Computed example of a mutant assay.
Amino acid sequence: MKIYSFLLFWIGIILLGGCQSTQVDTMDLLDEKIRTIEISKTIETGVINDNVIATLEDQKSIKILEKTIRSAVQKNSNVNVKETLPDFNLIVNYKEGYPSHPIHVWLGEEGKESTLTYIFGEMDTYMTLPEQTNALRQLLLSIER
């Protein structure tokens, strides 16, 4: 009986350890203070549009976009990112002159996920939570008007 208990104990430990090793990949930003976020309409996938329509400097708007980016989870998108033009470019600029993070945004419908990718790279897709899309829509669409 002790042998069975011992085996069950170790099987349980192994299973718990395996379950906890599941890691979710999210978008990366530097752990540095964000100075500004520049927003532009996309003219071509993989290209930064220099015609900036807004530069966000207020902490409330920056925090909304930062939370949206940092919480976006890597998974397949229903958007064909190689054939569908993104809606917006976000350029995250840091204080102290650290390199910027350029990001494409395919803005989802209200209550749906949005798709984010790094402008340069493998075009891995990251999906936002629906509530993040709602905040993103409110912010970006108010700027576009």
Rank of each mutant, 00 (worst) to 15 (best):
Y4N: 13
F6C: 11
F9G: 00
W10P: 00
I14P: 01
I14Y: 10
L15R: 06
L16K: 03
C19E: 03
C19H: 10
S21I: 08
T22L: 09
D25N: 15
T26A: 04
L30Y: 08
D31C: 00
D31P: 02
E32T: 01
E32Q: 03
I34K: 02
I39C: 09
S40E: 04
K41V: 01
T42K: 07
T42L: 03
I43G: 13
I43K: 15
I43S: 12
I53A: 13
L56E: 05
E57F: 10
D58M: 03
Q59H: 01
Q59L: 04
S61T: 05
S61C: 00
S61V: 02
I62Q: 03
L65A: 10
E66P: 02
K67S: 15
K67I: 04
S71N: 11
Q74V: 00
V81L: 02
K82Q: 11
F88Y: 15
N89D: 11
L90A: 07
I91D: 07
V92I: 12
E96D: 13
E96K: 09
S100A: 15
I103T: 04
W106C: 13
W106Y: 14
K112N: 13
E113R: 14
T117M: 03
I119P: 00
I119M: 15
I119G: 05
E122F: 14
D124L: 10
Y126A: 06
M127G: 05
M127I: 10
T128M: 01
T128H: 04
L129T: 09
L129I: 03
P130N: 06
E131K: 05
Q132N: 14
Q132K: 14
A135N: 14
A135C: 00
L141I: 07
L141D: 04
S142Y: 03
S142C: 01
S142Q: 14
I143R: 01
R145I: 04
